[in-house]
Every structure is written in C-alpha cells, then in structure tokens.
C-alpha cells in the first residue's frame, strides 16, 4: 500500500514539476526568439518589463488571463470552447513519455525521471499529436466564419499531410534503437563513436537526412514560417484563431512538443542529457527557428 501511495505522490510531483518547467521554458523561448529576431532586425525586442525584458512573458500571461472572455454570438458554443482545450491537452499529454534524467532513489524507492515509461511511447506521441488536429479543425469550424473555416481547413490539411513525413522520418530511429520506448531510444544513444563523436542518431549513417525531414515536417506541423500558409495574416486574418480570445494559447502549444521529441529521438545522451538537451534545443531553436523568422520577409 505504501508503495502505491508513494508512486501516486511521486507521479503528481513529477507532473506538476514537468508542466511548470515546460511552460516556463516555452514562455522564455518565445522571449528569446523575440529578442534575437529583434536584434537581427536592428531593434531591441522586449525591453521594458524587467531587466532585458525578462518579465515580458509573465506580463503577457497576465494580459491573456485578464482579457475579457468574449464569445461572439454566432459561434457554435460547445466546440468553440472545447477546441482550444483539445489542442492544449494533446500538446501537454505528449510530454508525459519524454525522459528527462536517470532514475533516482528516494527513501528506498526508485523514481524514474519520466512521468511514465511506455513500451509504445513514440506511438503515443504520434497518436496524441494526430488527435490534436481536431483542435485546429474544430476551432476553424466552430467560429462560423468563412475566414476561420478556410484557415482551419488549410491548417488541418497541412498537419495531416505532414504527419506522414513526420512518422516516416522516425522509422530510422526505431530501426537503430529497436524500441518504441523513449527511454530505450535515449539509452541506445549513450557513448561515443571513435571516442569523441557523441553517439547520437543524427550522426549515425544517413540519419541526418531523416532529421532534416523531421525538422521541416515539424515546422509545417506547427505552422511556422515557411509553412505559415494557414495563418496567412493578410488574406485570412490569422486563420483559425480569428474570433478567438486566447490566440496565444494555441500558438504556444503547438510548437513546444516538437522540439522535445526531436531532441529525445535524435540527439539524446544518457546520463546528464538534460542540460545538454536544453542547450541544444535552445541553440537550435535560436539558430534555425529564429533565423527563419528574421530572414524570410513573408
């Protein structure tokens, strides 16, 4: 009984911690992106709130929370409310299988640093993200407006079609590591080739091609810049989140999961990979993600 109790308490603590850290990290990644893009375009980016604009994410969050909860009269109410929930829940569920450290021992119990280790972890992520398409499609449809509908159709069509590239580009990783469990995938990448190249999947054979495909598909999935047709601001006034109060809500949720998976799948390292992964993710996000936004004048 005490085992069960311990398990439940440990799981709840882990869930709260992971969600808190993740959401903070996302907020500050957005801050970083705005800052870097600003400097690339010769402006300051957020600089007013706190030192270096560091409190800007908090201010944004407060602003979103304090906004009037406006529901236009002509919308289909139940789905209008449910659609963003579906999107956010799906995005947050997929982090539950991502490992973030080695198991530690607390009071004689072994606590794995992962909310849950499933045999089918990678499939779970793919499944949950494919369910997340409903959030977008329904958000567009339930607003009962032509622009939103078109945006929702475009976005969901793009997400469904790039999901295939996404899934197929992971096959190489599965073959190399021989498992769907993310913990085993990460463990299979511990060690070094020739003593100095880290044994990440991205350096294994031609995996970098798969990585590139994955990256592009992930940009398309999250409707980031080269693939931001669905959010076309000029013709569709930001597509499916037209008419929507918490548009930042959706925009945030999509992009956070992707970077986590790729780092676990392609560049995970075994013992101390938390720090390294964060660095990699940040630098990566910075040098590719931010560069895109800055240099594509679309």
């Amino acid at each position: 009984m005490s085992n069960l109790l311990f398990f439940i308490v440990a799981s709840i603590i882990k869930i709260v911690l992971v969600i808190f850290i993740l959401l903070t990290a996302v907020a500050y990644t957005v801050w970083l992106e705005r800052k870097v893009v600003g400097h690339m375009q010769n402006r300051w980016g957020p600089s007013r709130v706190g030192p270096f604009g560091l409190l800007q994410p908090a201010a944004d969050g407060i602003k979103f929370l304090m906004k009037e909860d406006l529901t236009p009269p002509h919308v289909y109410r139940p789905l209008f409310i449910a659609a963003p929930m579906i999107a956010v829940i799906c995005a947050l569920t997929s982090i539950s299988v991502i490992p973030f450290g080695n198991a530690i021992t607390v009071f004689g119990h072994i606590v794995p640093m992962q909310i849950t280790d499933l045999n089918i972890g990678l499939l779970l992520i793919l499944g949950v993200t494919s369910v997340g398409v409903y959030g977008v499609a329904l958000a567009g449809w339930s607003s009962n407006s032509k622009y939103s509908l078109l945006g929702g159709l475009r976005a969901s069509a793009q997400m469904v079609s790039y999901e295939i590239c996404l899934g197929l580009s992971l096959v190489g990783v599965l073959i190399v590591s021989g498992s769907f469990s993310l913990r085993e995938i990460v463990q299979s990448q511990s060690g070094h080739f020739f003593g100095f190249i880290p044994k990440w999947n991205i350096f294994y054979g031609c995996q970098f091609i798969a990585f590139f495909i994955y990256l592009m598909a992930a940009y398309a999935e999250t409707n980031r810049l080269p693939f931001d047709l669905p959010e076309a601001e000029t013709e569709l006034v930001a597509g499916y989140h037209d008419h929507r109060r918490l548009r930042g809500h959706r925009a945030l949720s999509g992009r956070l999961e992707r970077s986590d998976i790729w780092s676990a799948a392609f560049a995970g390292d075994s013992p101390d990979f938390l720090v390294r992964r964060k660095n990699l993710r940040f630098s990566f996000y910075l040098y590719l993600g931010a560069r895109h936004t800055a240099t594509f004048p679309l």
Partner: peptide, 8 residues
C-alpha cells in the same frame, strides 16, 4: 479527421 474534413 477525414470525416470531419468532409463535413466542414
């Protein structure tokens, strides 16, 4: 999703 798509 295909169904929802066609309905939309």
């Amino acid at each position: 999703v295909l169904f929802v798509f066609v309905i939309m």
